[in-house]
Design a protein around this nucleic acid. Structure first.
Length: 210
DNA sequence: TGCCAGGCCCTCTTTAGGGCCTT
């Protein structure tokens, strides 16, 4: 059983066959990085075979082809290994409501789950990086000059960029004297409401609206 | 290419509507 640390998070990203598991869409790739006290200590990346052909749009969008998926492991085996990877850790994703739906759906297929809390880097970026014209992951990476290798829409590459964005926002909070910035950001849960937002983020929004 | 869904959030709002963001 891994040790749980308040400053440990797993940043994850799914590539999928579409937008909605409720409409029959499945995961085709999972990528993740594990951060401990701001350092990458482990990574996870696996393709998974959804059991049917993906559309040409998804092949073009992700670069993941049906030929690549033909020899990939099934979703259950991959997700079983991923469940072990995230066990006991809090989770971060960009537009987390999307990744959470697929994580929940894929794990539910074999009655698995996770105990960590999910939070959303996009919701935090909307508060902390209000001068960015958009809050798409790629646009934020370019806007903030975050290092990248030019690969987008692959799971590990997007998880790595989300992790760098997460660390950048932690630094910004730290420089502003926010105590325990990881805890502050983890309070901005994907299912949060205005009332549930930490006072700090409400202050940021109030200042921006002046 | 961009629709499918769904949660968040803003506004010309709250008995609603629509943009953003994810693949």
């Amino acid at each position: 059983m891994p040790s749980t640390s308040a400053n440990t998070v797993v940043v994850l990203d799914f590539e999928t066959t579409g937008l909605s598991p409720n409409m029959g869409d499945r995961a085709i790739e999972i990528g993740a990085v594990k951060l401990v006290d701001g350092e990458v200590v482990d990574t996870f990346q696996e393709l998974m075979n959804p059991g049917f052909r993906v559309s040409s749009f998804i092949e073009g969008y992700t670069g993941i082809t049906n030929n690549m998926l033909r020899t990939a492991s099934g979703c259950e085996g991959v997700m079983s290994r991923f469940a072990e990877f995230i066990a006991g850790f809090n989770l971060v994703a960009h537009n987390a409501s999307f990744d959470k739906r697929f994580l929940d759906a894929e794990l539910a297929r074999f009655h698995a789950g996770y105990s960590g809390q999910f939070t959303c880097s996009m919701l935090i970026a909307r508060r902390l990086i209000q001068d960015s014209p958009t809050h798409k992951l790629g646009d934020l990476v370019h806007f903030k000059g975050i290092a990248n290798d030019g690969v987008f829409h692959r799971a590990l590459a997007d998880a790595e960029m989300t992790a760098r964005l997460w660390l950048l926002m932690l630094d910004e909070l730290d420089q502003q004297g926010i105590a325990n910035p990881t805890f502050a950001m983890m309070q901005t849960i994907s299912r949060t409401s205005k009332q549930a937002l930490p006072a700090f983020f409400n202050k940021q929004r109030s200042k921006a609206s002046l």
